[in-house]
Design a protein around this nucleic acid. Structure first.
Lengths: 259, 259
DNA sequence: GGAAATGGTTTCATTATTTGAAACATATGT
DNA sequence: ACATATGTTTCAAATAATGAAACCATTTCC
């Protein structure tokens, strides 16, 4: 009886494998996967075959490499429409972006990481390179902290435990204690700031999107660089950011968005 | 020994179930799924549990409903970047859209259906998975026919066999014979037209994206309405559409896009 | 040219997971 | 309280997954 980290039978293993391929972000050969996989050759081979049959992976005959398959794009379309805040938040994000003229992000939490579900880029007519679907760390982004600050009890501990606490810059919070203190602060403050904790020169203000009952659905942020605005200037945007968050929450409530 | 359509063991069943939930496009209750599922109660129950654990489905406690989960969005991000033509085609689509001032679609084939992987809308800018990830029929869209026309032998028959041949309008092709004749025509012509076959008043011109070796990677189209342009006017765009298709193919070749 | 290595695929007896009818819970309505 | 609809758990039987090893096909090295 051995415990392979965490998995739901064969399906779990298959999906873990799919993740491995996807997160590499480039075509991979069988052998390379074998090296990082916990499974023996034959098992991995069949997992990959199954995933390929199913269109979850694409196999390039010529190069003998695997990549994530297009079936995922199709499935994600539905997920994005139904389970993300993006469709609901759209007009509000548009308005906010127009008003502040800076980059605006909309994010939700997915297994301890921040998942960006929509974005407005002030200047260029959209960096269409799929920002939706990108993931980022929770402990050193404005949206991540804003969301975590409003998680309760177990969910919060869970999220905190999943953080990597890698020191990206010298302001990055690198301990659970520091993060917890910051989250309490954010909770009472109502907004979160990213003080160059993820990337030097990049700062943001973020507000949680909270339901009537206090459940956190996601967060949104306005991001800028220290060369353009100071933290103080950013914090002047608080009313706009918060009211946008509230409007999104209200719209979600009307639409009966699942929590 | 019974043959449940087509499946790869447990993983196949799980993914089929995931598809079912996703394609309904709205939250579903257990019982509703049970009705359409080939599996007994307990089996379906556990499949759903597994998928939920894995983040492929989201379960709304309050409403007791399942929806596609956000993990899909995250996975699809990678799929879209790696396995779709969209990143490669981006500048070319931009240019074409600017030149023609009409809606431009980029599509690939996924299991007999047209999968739109990018879009330019003359007016409003795009949101990621709202357009990308959408699927449409193959037999009555310009892109669908353009792609199928350049599939060879078995692949082509396969694609044809997967068509539903539902009569959307009175110009819709509703038999394999009619479609095959049309595909031959398209192949020799080089471009495909949608003559209001899918929606009344909507017409388009589409060109296949072909590799050096004649393999079809996808197709792109310019869509308009009969109130704005006639078929004849649309066909004047042929040079622009075709040269864009060629440029995309060349870029794909340089980038070693997997076929 | 031949040997060895590399990378991918298949076999098959063993083992573990999945299965599903039925019993059990837990609401929701009468 | 009763009935009904819906969701969850049990457990022996059926099935599918496993993985060591053999196999096949290329490429690389001597």
């Amino acid at each position: 009886m051995n415990k392979p980290a965490s998995s739901d039978g064969t399906v779990g293993k298959a999906l873990e494998t799919l993740d491995m391929v996807a997160e590499l972000g480039r075509p991979v050969r069988f052998t390379e996967l074998l090296a990082m996989s916990p499974h023996p050759k034959a098992t991995l081979y069949r997992l990959l075959q199954t995933l390929t049959n199913q269109g979850m992976l694409a196999y390039d005959e010529a190069r003998q490499t695997y990549s994530p398959g297009l079936r995922l794009v199709r499935l994600a379309h539905f997920a994005w429409r139904q389970s993300s805040l993006a469709p609901i938040a759209r007009p509000h994000l548009d308005a906010l972006a127009a008003a502040v003229g800076e980059t605006v992000h909309l994010a939700q939490m997915d297994r301890g990481q921040v998942l960006y579900v929509d974005k407005r880029n002030a200047v260029d007519p959209i960096e269409m390179f799929s920002q939706a679907g990108k993931v980022g760390p929770g402990y050193c982004t404005g949206v991540g902290k804003a969301i975590m600050a409003h998680l309760e009890g177990e969910a919060r501990q869970n999220a905190i435990n999943q953080q990597a606490f890698f020191r990206h810059t010298n302001t990055t919070l690198t301990t659970t204690e520091a993060l917890e203190a910051e989250l309490d602060e954010i909770r009472s403050e109502g907004v979160a700031f990213d003080r160059e904790e993820h990337e030097p020169g990049i700062i943001c203000i973020a507000a949680p999107i909270l339901t009537e009952g206090g459940r956190v659905l996601g967060a949104l942020s306005v991001t800028t660089s220290t060369s353009r605005q100071s933290l103080e200037q950013l914090s002047d945007l608080r009313p706009k950011v918060q009211s946008t968050a509230i409007k999104i929450a209200e719209t979600a409530e009307v639409w009966q968005f699942p929590t």
